[in-house]
């Protein structure tokens, strides 16, 4: 797991004056799950679109399996699989017909294609619905067929662009387990998400992207070191009280390093939760600010993002 299958150097994409990706450089090693974590609009999909030869970069270079994505895009497209964010399927066709169509687009045919279709249908647990039209499937089932298409030709590198958006927790669980199985089978996965928990659960390494820039890169342990031993106190305020209105109040409490508001909650970065907690509670009591509950969170990728950007991941 040491040889890189993907390497980008200073990859850029601009639309007129708008710079969507601002010089991204990273490598993905063979056999690993590499996550690009960032909020919506951070540049994740644009980066994947360039790497999958759909968009031409405005600058920089990228190589996949030794092939340049610009000058040798046909060879690149032979070894990558793409699972797009949207359900890119033909709903009028059955699951099997969809797989047959996409397999043909990957130059597969005959018995080999038929056998592979059966394999991936079993892999995504939809063999029994193979001959049903995709339009009759639930959102989660469509997502799984969407993934199956990307797996058909056994790609060396699989791009998965937010594959769990808009589905129920059960289907999400299935997809995450499937991604881990793929890694166990030796496939390399570049996974984009704005869900911190997914990146934490799946990734061997994570790249944090924001406003088109890669702001951090490493294993989860390496990244959390950035925020030191900081913990997070998450305060759920009473109804009618906005966290934004009380941020300054708590930054003055001893042991509180910073305060951030998110969806009516308040996130306080503290050096030691047990030491800071009494001061936080007494401050709230002093101004009669009702607190419904307090969660103490260990350092995680969300804290890293907060530390690096001053914003919460889901802002």
């Amino acid at each position: 797991m040491s040889e890189p299958i993907l390497t980008t150097k200073d990859l850029r994409k601009s639309y007129g004056d708008l710079e969507a990706v601002k010089g991204v450089s990273f490598s993905v090693l063979r056999g690993e799950i590499f996550s690009l974590l960032g909020p919506n609009g951070a540049g994740k999909t644009t980066t994947i679109s360039m790497l999958s030869c759909l968009l031409s970069p405005s600058g920089g270079t990228a190589e996949i399996g030794g092939h340049d994505i610009i000058s040798n895009s046909l060879d690149v497209r032979k070894i990558i699989g793409v699972v797009p964010q949207e359900i890119a399927l033909y709903e009028e066709l059955t699951a099997r017909q969809n797989l047959h169509f996409w397999g043909s687009m990957y130059n597969m045919s005959g018995k080999a294609l038929k056998a592979r279709i059966d394999e991936v249908l079993t892999q995504v647990n939809l063999a029994e619905r193979a001959n049903d039209r995709v339009s009759t499937f639930s959102g989660g089932m469509k997502r799984r067929i969407n993934i199956a298409v990307g797996l058909l030709h056994k790609p060396q590198l699989l791009f998965m662009d937010e594959p769990t958006v808009g589905i129920d927790p059960q289907s999400r669980r299935r997809i995450l387990d499937m991604v881990k199985e793929l890694r166990d089978q030796g496939m390399t996965v570049l996974y984009t998400t704005h869900y911190m928990e997914e990146a934490e659960e799946l990734s061997d390494r994570v790249g944090i992207i924001d406003h088109g820039k890669l702001i951090a890169l490493g294993t989860q342990a390496e990244l959390t070191k950035v925020v030191g031993q900081q913990e997070t106190l998450r305060l759920h305020l009473g109804e009618g009280h906005l966290a934004e209105d009380h941020l300054e109040l708590f930054t003055a409490v001893q042991g509180v390093l910073s305060a951030t508001a998110l969806n009516g909650e308040m996130a306080l970065s503290v050096t030691e939760a047990e030491e800071a907690l009494p001061g936080v509670i007494s401050k709230a009591n002093a101004v009669a600010l009702p607190i419904r509950s307090i969660d103490i969170e260990e350092p995680n990728l969300e804290a890293v993002f907060l530390h690096l950007t001053g914003r919460a991941l889901r802002d």
Binding site: C53, L54, L74, V82, I87, A88, M105, Y106
Partner: peptide, 14 residues
Amino acid sequence: RRGTLRRLLTTPTQ
């Protein structure tokens, strides 16, 4: 609209 055209152009199909 469905994104099938985008997906198709990521396959080795001209």
